[in-house]
Design a protein around this nucleic acid. Structure first.
Lengths: 144, 144
DNA sequence: GTAGTTGCAAAACCTTTGCACTAGG
DNA sequence: CCTAGTGCAAAGGTTTTGCAACTAC
């Protein structure tokens, strides 16, 4: 996966540096968990202590520009990053109010909403859906 | 409108201060436009120059706790605030990529998405939908 | 009167930027 | 080589906090 992203970097004349690879590998290792820049920074620092936080931010910004990663706010006052994966597939998220787990939601029933807006003259290029509540693991816990 | 919010403050043993009123009035005057804390601060400052930004933040936090205002991030690195208005009515937004206008969207086709999650054992307490694109005014402008 | 509220200044965050040094192609 | 990329430290922007003074009830 990281290899194919490196090809995109190459194709766009960006250098495939040790840092950029390490950042993408840390994100890949997270395996679907949406990380903050800080979390990626500390993840990479484990086996690459010289890395700087600005490199992380600059790399994430570059990867977002190249549509390799997606940057979203979950109303925490900071951003989280994830690989885009499927082109053209919108991302819906479920956020557990108790444990903060963020999971991907596959269903997409928003087409009707978009169609209705497009009838009214809007052009929809993207959308974001975030669902909040309690996941099965937390719904039965009385203690929070 | 502000009067009814003052009653909620009273009922919950919070004081109805000049500052809190002024903040709610500034938000009311915005008439549906989603303001940042800073915008509210400068709005109130017009006819109440002594107000402090921390009062604005503290008031907004209080109003959010009392479900009077809703705090959302539109991926700009800061929060915007709006009155909750209709209880139980979810807020969907459309954000114009060109002019940044944020408009409310009434349609709600998400029930199916929620139902499907609830069948899987999740409890949904809230959700957020943000649509991005171009509004009718911007779609025909070649210059951006 | 007195506990809740305020304004100020400072701090705490997250993110960006300037600059000299480094390394990928 | 030579420019893009890096690490550091400093700055920027938003939000929070500590504290003495103040005010709504």
């Amino acid at each position: 996966m990281v290899d194919s992203y490196c090809k995109i970097l190459n194709k766009n004349r960006f250098k495939v540096t040790r840092q950029r690879k390490a950042i993408m590998e840390a994100m890949e290792k997270a395996n679907g968990v949406h990380l903050t820049a800080d979390e990626i920074y500390f993840g990479v620092k484990q086996d690459y202590p010289e890395i700087g936080i600005s490199t992380v931010y600059r790399t994430l910004e570059l990867l977002a520009r190249l549509n390799i990663v997606h940057k979203t706010s979950f109303d925490e006052g900071k951003f989280r990053y994830e690989f885009c994966e499927d082109e053209g597939h919108y991302h819906h998220h479920f956020v557990c109010n108790a444990c903060g787990t963020i999971i991907e939601v596959e269903e997409d029933f928003l087409h009707q909403l978009e169609e209705s807006l497009e009838e009214r003259g809007f052009i929809i290029t993207d959308h974001k859906v975030q669902l909040y509540g309690y996941c099965p693991a937390c719904r039965n816990q009385d203690t929070e």
